[in-house]
Design a protein around this nucleic acid. Sequence first.
RNA 1: GCGAAAGUGGCGGAAUUGGUAGACGCGCUGGAUUUAGGAUCCAGUGGGGCAACCCGUGAGGGUUCGAGUCCCUCCUUUCGCACCA
Length: 864
Amino acid sequence: MQENYDPAAVEAAAQRHWQEHDTFRASEDPARPKYYCLSMFPYPSGRLHMGHVRNYTIGDVISRFMRMQGCNVLQPMGWDAFGLPAENAAIANGVPPAKWTHDNIATMKRQLKTLGFGLDWSRELATCLPSYYRWNQWLFLRMLERGIAYKRTGTVNWDPVDQTVLANEQVIDGRGWRTGAPVEKRNIPMYYLGITAYAEELLAALDRLDGWPERVRTMQANWIGRSEGVNIAFPYRLGEERRLLRVFTTRADTLLGVSFVAIAAEHPLAAHAAASNRALAEFVEECKRGSIMEADLATMEKKGMPTGLTVGHPLTGAQLPVWVGNYVLMAYGEGALMGVPGHDERDWAFAKKYGLPILPVIDVGGRPYSTDAWQPWYADHGRCVRSGRYDGLDYAAATHRIAADLEAQGLGKLQVQWRLRDWGISRQRYWGCPIPIIHCERCGDVPVPDEQLPVLLPEDLVPDGSGNPLAKSAAFVNCTCPGCGRPARRETDTMDTFVDSSWYFLRYASADNERAMVDARVGYWLPVDQYVGGIEHAILHLLYARFWTRVMRDVGLVTLDEPFAKLLTQGMVRNSIFLRRPAAGRLVYYNPADVEVLTDASGSPLGARLKSDGGPVESGGIGTMSKSRNNGVDPQAIIDRFGADTARLFMMFAAPPDLSLDWSDEAAEGMFRFLKRLWKEVYVHVTSGEPVRLDPPALAAAAKELRRLAHQTLAKVTDDFGRRRTFNTAIAAVMELLNAVHGFDEEGPQARAVVHEALEIAVLTLSPVTPHLAHALWRELGHERAVIDEPWPRPDPAALVQDAIELVVQVNGKLRGRVTVPAAASDGEVRAAALADPQVRRFVGGQSVRKVIVVAGKLVNVVV
RNA sequence: GCGAAAGUGGCGGAAUUGGUAGACGCGCUGGAUUUAGGAUCCAGUGGGGCAACCCGUGAGGGUUCGAGUCCCUCCUUUCGCACCA
């Protein structure tokens, strides 16, 4: 055996073994329980980053653990290969997105292989390949047939200089990223998928997703946002015609407190009023400036302008002014709201600003009300006052009575309203899946016939940042109408990349099928048993995938509702931020690798300086690794320095998987030291002779104690890996075991046999995390079979038995002593032993013992 | 603004069901060894105190024999907000 740990050689040898034995190719085997472990596929951005390493290490540890547990494990990999960065790279470097993407895939695939992940590469897919995206188009056509997909107008960010639709990401402080021109909103026709038709089911099924983190379920439920309320119509006259302005409200009980109605700038009535009102037209135009991001809309200054129109109160007939308000969302409810300044904080602020009446109509348990200042309880539920026949009714009663009265007049009804909006999938971009529609002057929008699929995306275009290159490509645009055979124009919008990622997990099960989107093998592998990915996908991607799976179910392609049985949302990877503030200009960020942190004698930081010039740099705290803050660490550098196993071990040890993880060069080096120690420990053991067969009853006390620790560690690691998914504590337990082996100085054959067993347990339990090192050490410990093919061991119950246990004794809840009692001692004996302890007697002194609480196996609390 | 989390030594974190706060690792201090080392090994390391002990889990209240853990109020940080993926 080599005396020193050489990660490069060890890792190459293990990877060669897996390659030669095709270890990770999965096939359907009804005889074994299947286990589908899936990590979110990467966007091929160039190189692997630490977030990928973390994600795929978690998935790989679970996969290898489940495999050793006897499962038929599938762990596939693919590429989320369409998207904006490829177009940005094309604009910057003039390289076609296809080439850039394929080069990146090659690089990242090579990197994934050096990390030793147990992936079945035979199922690899990339969403930018026609063999994949043709099925996006095919299912889109099925959705169109069923009315799930439909066309209507939607709002986009518009750069008036580049004449281009901008992604939210391309809008910086309300301006286009390349032109700096103020962004405008623009309404254009788009295709939508009717996810709201599935809202009820998507919400209800969350309750049964008990393998998902509670926080993700809550976030999805809030996103879907079911609210029960009343749709209320305010009648008005337009010329001779009687019309209704509809609003949705969850507070119908405050209807008698309405003092105005506010509509969105995009509301048809606003356009009508603006036609004859120059100031209003300007205000509506002003509202159309700025981005479409909800966070921007919600934080901007609340502004409004009267339209000059009035509507009638549906119960009293009183005339109420109609205002245009920039805080009214066209996308929610009816794009209009009833203003109740007395009981809604935003309406309050609006009324104060524009001098509209504030009418309190709810009594909240008699708490004071003054129109001077808003108090949080004004929005609470209570009983109606100053509301005529509704006075005294509580929230539910008032809502139902008012809804019934409105319904009798045809002016309202109870309604369930969703916050969730239908999914707009049209993107005015090149590098995506073409939407299979042909526009014909005579036949209108004609779906591309199935036999003409896929609509191929040309791969040789180079975008320049203005407009969509597809729209400028005559070869792509010009086509023949499938209906009438005349010249027609192809749709040039492509699909949202979330479409691609909404079903890739199904395709892995039948990746080689060229005739169908999915086949019967989906029934074997799905659902995904364990899905692993970033918390940033907690809402959108996961919700779209749940929706898409249900659509495929309703089309008859699959039989499952929920694609992901268990979900693990891993936290972000962060690093220190260092910067300087030049007298003029922007902040300059320095990579932590180029900075030296100065500490005092206790290790507390005093400051930091740049290694290159020795000058001070400012600490900017700690934040997610990003290019803009220059605090990224290239995983390749760590692999080159310490090997993949160290990188993997650090990722699993430094934090529990669902919390954010802070990078530390020193801590990574500590992981490397641990692996060197483990190697050394095995080396010392195997070079000092052959082990004899272990004879547990013959063990001396210290050896028995070491054996107990080894089996206790095995039990803990099994639980931590399998149930708790707290890999950090599992690794800590193995470290403790190794420390105990190191400190164990008994000699003799049986002592050696116990050490041998402890080292085997350490190697087996670490093997999912550091598979290369474990592969080598398992051989050195005398095993023919590769460690990946070993079954996961079970702790020996006999080894776990303890004769005596130590209990903690508290007096009035404070730790005052410890007593050792036989493991089988009764509560009475434990109590007596605790009271007899000299330290306990000292603290009890002359006081009378009021109560003694005995917690079996743990502690005794003496209350005096 | 809305929604969701998190806050424990110098740092990452542990404490699994309300029961020993600080496991494990980093850093730091001292020592050994070494030509030397940023290598390796040994010991120590929450704060205060000579000690007995006292204090201590973002802040402030509460429940309990007992609270890092449960409840209320507040503060800070992170993530998401529908065209980044």
